[in-house]
């Protein structure tokens, strides 16, 4: 596993861009690689910390069991919502052919 001190490679950045669905051209990949590398290098400071036995903090305030009753609430107006969509047809949201996607 890479530690947070090591720089990010252009290949890493390209892979991340693919995962994040951002079409970034090669020139930008280099630019991002340099900038992210600097940022990640700065973040190497936490490598020095001994974090054994520390419980990760995922919530700032410790609430538990927040639930709602199984009761219907108002729904949105289909026409209003579809009017805001980039493309719609037959009361549905239209998208280009789905190819080359995991699923």
């Amino acid at each position: 596993m890479t530690t947070s001190g090591s720089p990010i490679s252009a290949a890493d950045v390209a892979k991340v861009a693919r995962l994040a669905r951002l079409d970034i051209d090669n020139a930008h990949i280099e630019h991002f690689t340099e900038q992210l590398g600097k940022v990640m290098a700065h973040f190497a400071d936490i490598d020095a910390l001994n974090l054994d036995g520390v419980t990760p903090m995922t919530q700032p305030y410790p609430l538990v069991n927040v639930m709602r009753d199984d009761v219907e609430m108002p729904t949105l107006d289909t026409d209003e919502v579809l009017a805001a969509a980039p493309a719609a047809e037959e009361r549905r949201f239209r998208v280009p052919p789905i190819i080359g996607i995991e699923g």
């Binding site: 669905r21 079409d23 919502v81 805001a84 969509a85 980039p86 493309a87 949201f93 998208v95 280009p96 052919p97 789905i98 190819i99 080359g100 996607i101």
Partner: peptide, 14 residues
């Protein structure tokens, strides 16, 4: 897909 900008492309992933 549901709101905001879309740049058209031949398939959904693109």
């Amino acid at each position: 897909v549901r709101f905001g900008l879309r740049v058209n492309a031949p398939d959904t992933n693109a």
